[in-house]
């Protein structure tokens, strides 16, 4: 490969690289710079070094928001992954009924967060909601999903799982259709049970898809925002305030752009760390299973 050909190759990727640099790399560094300043939305500010980060470290509202974010992510990702996998297994056939059900289960994914939260408010509201009425009909006291500090995060998790089920299900369906059918035939000839077939053939073959789903969903749910803002406004008493809602309130409600940028950088680093940790852990798992 000579030098001239290298330059021609660069020309092909240049439009993408320029756009990437403009809308991703530049804002990343700009955000980093803003986080080192006490600055409002109109640019009036001054350099304060790490002061915003020190403030964040001592801010109980931010630490609660981070904790809430991790809790709700832990509530969502495992359940979502298992449910999506089960649905994909159930609907992985060529019948019309399965196709219809695939469409129905995917349909929630096309709704906007506003519609999703509106629907779930009607379900979860204790006084006139669907669950509240069902509870009352059974003679029980309705659960205050939207105002009990112990129930708001599960409420956000249920809403999000319902909304987000479609894409992981499709990914698993795509993964299932990649598994050669003769492996299942061989298992059937060996009289392997359905559980053994699932454990020994399906799960190992889907390992990459599972990792992909877990990593994508972890990164997505660590940025959960709309459900928290619209369903509970972060309440009660901050019990459902997530990290992104915190930085939205800080930037646009309080005009503290520097402080919000510092929170955004912290969140970015945390998402990066969690994603890399998952990647590392699953890579080690693969190596270990390969060694066996």
């Amino acid at each position: 490969m000579n030098g001239a050909r290298d330059w021609r190759g660069l020309l092909f990727v240049a439009p993408f690289m320029l756009l990437y640099a403009l809308i991703l790399v530049f804002p990343l560094f700009r955000g980093l710079w803003l986080s080192l300043n006490r600055v409002d939305l109109f640019g009036d500010g001054r350099f304060v070094g790490a002061a915003n980060y020190v403030r964040l470290a001592n801010d109980p509202i931010f630490s609660t928001a981070l904790l809430n974010t991790f809790k709700v992510t832990l509530m969502i990702v495992p359940v979502l992954t298992v449910l999506a996998l089960l649905l994909a297994l159930a609907l992985n056939n060529a019948g019309r009924g399965a196709a219809l059900l695939r469409g129905i289960f995917f349909s929630s994914a096309v709704l906007s967060v506003t519609i999703v939260t509106l629907i779930w408010r009607f379900v979860l509201a204790p006084d006139a909601g669907l669950l509240g009425e069902a509870w009352k009909a059974a003679g029980w006291q309705p659960l205050a999903f939207l105002s009990d500090p112990h129930l708001v995060l599960p409420a956000l998790a249920i809403t999000t799982i319902w909304w987000s089920l479609g894409l992981p299900m499709l990914l698993f369906l795509a993964g299932l259709q990649q598994i050669p059918h003769d492996m299942y035939e061989a298992a059937a000839l060996d009289n392997a049970s359905r559980w053994t077939t699932f454990r020994r053939i399906t799960v190992p073959a889907l390992r990459r898809t599972i990792v992909l789903v877990v990593m994508l969903q972890t990164a997505a749910q660590l940025q959960l925002f709309g459900q928290s803002q619209l369903l509970t406004a972060g309440g009660p008493s901050g019990a459902s305030r997530t990290a992104v809602l915190f930085l939205f309130e800080t930037a646009f409600g309080r005009w503290e752009l520097g402080y919000a940028s510092a929170a955004a950088e912290m969140l970015f680093l945390l998402i990066l760390a969690v994603t890399l940790a998952q990647y590392w852990a699953t890579g080690r798992g693969r190596e270990a299973s390969g060694a066996r």
Binding site: G234, P236, S237, R254
Partner: peptide, 22 residues
């Protein structure tokens, strides 16, 4: 300044107090 954000903070804390969460 920031009366809207202040109202949000005061309301959040006092709602927690009146409902017995704090």
């Amino acid at each position: 300044q920031r009366q809207s954000a202040i109202e949000g903070i005061v309301g959040e804390e006092m709602a927690a107090a009146s409902t017995g969460q704090k």
